[in-house]
Design a binder for these strands. Sequence first.
DNA 1: CAGTGAGCGAGCTTCCGCTTGACTT
Length: 796
Amino acid sequence: MAKNLVIVESPAKAKTIEKFLGKDFEVKSSFGHIRDLSKKDFGIDIENNYQPIYEISPDKKKIVAELKKSLSDKTTVWLASDEDREGEAIAWHLFEVLKLQSTETKRIVFHEITKTAIEYAISNPRKINLDLVNAQQARRVLDRLVGFELSPILWKKVRPSLSAGRVQSVAVRLIVEREREIQQFSAEGLFRVKALFEVEIDGQIKALEAELEKRFKTAKETIKFLESCINASFTVSEVVQKPSKRSPAAPFTTSTLQQEASRKFGFSVSQTMRLAQNLYESGHITYMRTDSTNLSELALNSAETEIKTEFGAKYHQKRTYKSKAIGAQEAHEAIRPSYMNVANAGPSAQEKKLYDLIRKRTLASQMTDAQFERTQITIIISNNSYRFFAKGEVLIFDGFLKVYTESTDDEQETNEDSQSLPPLKAHDKLDFKQIEAREKFSLQAPRYTEASLVKKLEELGIGRPSTYAPTISTVQNRGYVVKDTREGVSREYQLIKLNKSGKINESIKTEQVGAEKNKLFPTDIGIVVTDFLVEHFENLMQYNFTADIEEQFDKIAMGKTKWPIMIDKFYKPFHVQVDEAMQVTAKKIGNRLVGNHPESNEPIYAKIGRFGPYIQIGENPIDGQEQKPKYASLRTGQHIDTISMDEALELFKLPRELGEFESKKIVAAIGRFGPYLRHNNKFISLKKYKEDPFTINLDRAIELIKTDREEDAKKTIKVFEDEDIKILNGRFGPYITQGKTNFKIPKSIIPENLLLEDCLKIIAEAGPKKNTTTKKNTEEKKPAKSSSKAKTKGKK
DNA sequence: CAGTGAGCGAGCTTCCGCTTGACTT
């Protein structure tokens, strides 16, 4: 019978460790925290020095019971939770809940799961560090105070079920401010001049592309320059060759893994974490929630062996990396393969891809630099002082690039330096084939992706590896932020070309700009809530708030400050702010008077409603008054804080009557699902035709109605009008529809051969099942929250 | 599936950080 009980946080870890420790040790897991603040009445006794009121989390009762049971025949308990603030608190909660005695309890820590590390830990036990525990309690209490005092203000002033917190509210602020920055940005065009030269080398004509150092502001200046080139001569003045190198990136942390999986595979952060969790649980990779770039000695050695056998000794270079992140607690290793020699792992294609990425990144981190030779050729012009530069880069030794290249966030920057240059020397003469000036516009700041937002949060020290993915989900689930793909707009730019024969040709071209794929956009709720919080809780919404209080937590951890004193210093002024925010006279925040109607002089408001932002013309009706205000919803991309009077009035031009077709009216409008046409009670979505309901004319509308009918005809296999039954071709193959309910057709049946009675039989057989599914659907749709959840699930 | 948006008040929501399943489509 084992005499020792070791408690770790993760069950997967428990399994591995048990193998190392032998018969005398039983290893169990606490599954993270076992106890938390009570959910009722705040869970904090504010009057009594902020005394926390803890209770065992409902889902942990079973685990605690099991731990108590296996405790009965043990003489020593080893608390082996992670070596960070949270881990220390977990150990302390276990100590308290399991009613352990200090004489028979030992606190141990290890940063890597290897036999030597664990044996070393066992032979160097210590006591629970209560200062560190107190720092965690302060962190926990502060987050509860902030979250549970701010959120109710929002329920009252904006909308029920909203939330605010130290982490999520700042995350939303980042998105809101970036959006504003983009709105206010105006692109400036500059003319970039590129020359294409031709050189004859050993009887062969080689091309050389070079860019002018000067960028012109106006077309006039540009043309003046090009004219001067017509009779100029071009001479190489200098050829400079320089070696350069590139070093591999550090092994993955949670945040960098999320970023790379997003850039390379387009995974969402939660998707990446789910896949990594699977790989971890099946023993393929080390722990996936980490801020450390450290690799164990064991990993370093096996990476070395792997690199040397696979690529040769000249590719190996042992490297250690320092964590850059603020507040990194380094309780684990970097994310790496458990066994470096395993080249493939994971059951699904996505897991295989992720594993491969992790393995290559880890190997690359222990490989030599890639070496390049950079060449720059300077070309001078006989009749002016501007110079052309041709840049080239040639790979001399691939090094780590043999296995792995890190992606970057700015996709727009293509690498123009990778051309290999012809062997030229000073005083060589060149002739141009063409010189082209293209107007290039400055780039707006990029919108955040899920992963780049995580990166930003990590840089600010906000949030932890275990909360990045949940935070990103929360801000979307609350409706503060949406992930969206939006089409760009076309923009004109000027192109001015000078060709060999000395002719200058000006033209206007168009390019697509501002297209966004899976980027984060703030919603009106997100904007309104952020503005409100920034106005009333300026300190809390500062980007460095977390970093600042972390310093105070550190003081508590060092025993220099008592935690209730620190909390009191924060809470007293904070609570005053809460009271003030509650007293704000406006019943609802976020309402804005856009102006007065130019004709009727009625007030025009932009408001937030149950169904999103809308414009209201006229005051709310007062009892007994007949007059009702008019309403119209805002369109995507419009916001209540920025919409102009003209844009607001424009919204009331819908629904538009276009005219008649087959003696029935055609109406164009925008509904919940986008712009549509309505004719004879049939709706035709304008989305797929990319038509604008404000401008579409009668002829085009009739055309669309006809195409829609053709498509319908293609879809329809058979119709039994009396019973309102149709056999249709859908996305998943043929099916039967009666009224608004659909029925599956068994695969053995050819749909064209179905008779009315066959259909009725299929419907009758599916009958009871139909009832339960429709019932469930309507039940689920009732609360607004769950229907929006179902939607996002469906999108994925 | 496609026009919505009052106000009252019952009783609900909510934080961040540790961990995995338990759910349904």
